Computed example of a mutant assay.
Amino acid sequence: MNEEKIALFPGSFDPITIAHVDILARALPLFSKVYIGIGLNSNKQALLSQELREEMIRAVYAGEEKVEVVSYEGLTVEFCSRIGASYILRGIRSSSDFEYEKAISQMNHAMRPEIESVFILSNPGYSAISSSIVRDVMRYGGDVNQFIPEQALAILKAQ
């Protein structure tokens, strides 16, 4: 049986980081297609526009046929149902990430038992890298070159 395995990798990606790229590189062999889903949350103030985040992610994954970039609002499990994804992909950096993601996964499972959460542990060298920390460094004019993929950095610098 050759069933398609479609996953959603949700996040703010504000901005995409090398840690995101690492998680997805390790997950791609497991799935036939991965949607990178930029979750739009009206309660959060994004630093980068939705369009810029999409452009940066598309640049990083140009030529990767298994990856598609999408934006969405609302419940992640409901969006999975709309796009036909049976898996939610999440990166885990720490035990606190695990506890948080476990609670969300259990709620998602209660709502949509057919959608499975898949956790990939961060490489130790990337465990301190998060979009929120990188965003703060950017806000205050710090150097983020080592934390953002080169293709995305080129777009960011062109702004």
Results as ranks from 00 to 15, higher is better:
residue 45 Q to T: 10
residue 45 Q to I: 14
residue 46 A to I: 10
residue 48 L to N: 04
residue 48 L to D: 04
residue 49 S to M: 05
residue 49 S to T: 14
residue 50 Q to A: 10
residue 51 E to G: 13
residue 53 R to P: 12
residue 53 R to D: 14
residue 54 E to R: 15
residue 55 E to I: 06
residue 55 E to S: 11
residue 56 M to F: 13
residue 56 M to R: 08
residue 57 I to S: 05
residue 58 R to P: 02
residue 59 A to M: 13
residue 59 A to H: 13
residue 59 A to G: 11
residue 61 Y to W: 07
residue 62 A to Y: 07
residue 63 G to D: 08
residue 65 E to M: 05
residue 65 E to G: 09
residue 65 E to R: 14
residue 65 E to P: 06
residue 65 E to C: 05
residue 66 K to A: 14
residue 66 K to M: 01
residue 67 V to W: 02
residue 67 V to K: 12
residue 67 V to Y: 03
residue 68 E to K: 14
residue 68 E to T: 13
residue 69 V to K: 04
residue 70 V to R: 09
residue 70 V to Q: 02
residue 72 Y to F: 15
residue 72 Y to I: 12
residue 76 T to Y: 13
residue 76 T to P: 10
residue 78 E to H: 09
residue 78 E to Q: 11
residue 80 C to A: 08
residue 81 S to A: 14
residue 82 R to H: 14
residue 82 R to Q: 15
residue 83 I to V: 11
residue 85 A to W: 01
residue 85 A to L: 02
residue 86 S to I: 00
residue 88 I to L: 00
residue 90 R to G: 02
residue 90 R to C: 00
residue 91 G to S: 03
residue 91 G to M: 06
residue 91 G to N: 06
residue 91 G to T: 01
residue 92 I to H: 03
residue 93 R to A: 00
residue 93 R to W: 00
residue 94 S to K: 00
residue 97 D to H: 04
residue 97 D to Y: 01
residue 97 D to N: 00
residue 99 E to F: 07
residue 101 E to F: 05
residue 102 K to W: 10
residue 102 K to L: 12
residue 103 A to Y: 01
residue 104 I to R: 08
residue 104 I to Q: 08
residue 105 S to A: 10
residue 106 Q to F: 07
residue 106 Q to P: 00
residue 107 M to S: 03
residue 108 N to C: 00
residue 109 H to E: 03
residue 110 A to P: 00
residue 110 A to Y: 15
residue 111 M to W: 00
residue 111 M to K: 02
residue 112 R to I: 03
residue 112 R to N: 10
residue 112 R to M: 06
residue 112 R to A: 12
residue 113 P to M: 05
residue 113 P to L: 07
residue 113 P to W: 09
residue 115 I to S: 00
residue 115 I to G: 00
residue 115 I to W: 09
residue 116 E to M: 10
residue 118 V to F: 07
residue 119 F to P: 01
residue 120 I to L: 15
residue 121 L to P: 03
residue 123 N to Y: 07
residue 123 N to S: 12
residue 123 N to Q: 14
residue 124 P to G: 06
residue 124 P to M: 08
residue 125 G to C: 03
residue 125 G to M: 09
residue 125 G to F: 03
residue 126 Y to I: 05
residue 126 Y to A: 04
residue 126 Y to P: 04
residue 127 S to N: 15
residue 129 I to R: 14
residue 130 S to N: 05
residue 131 S to I: 07
residue 132 S to C: 04
residue 133 I to E: 10
residue 133 I to A: 12
residue 134 V to Q: 02
residue 135 R to G: 07
residue 136 D to N: 14
residue 136 D to K: 13
residue 137 V to D: 08
residue 138 M to D: 06
residue 141 G to H: 02
residue 142 G to K: 11
residue 143 D to A: 08
residue 144 V to K: 15
residue 144 V to Q: 11
residue 145 N to H: 12
residue 145 N to P: 09
residue 149 P to C: 06
residue 149 P to I: 10
residue 150 E to F: 09
residue 151 Q to N: 12
residue 151 Q to H: 12
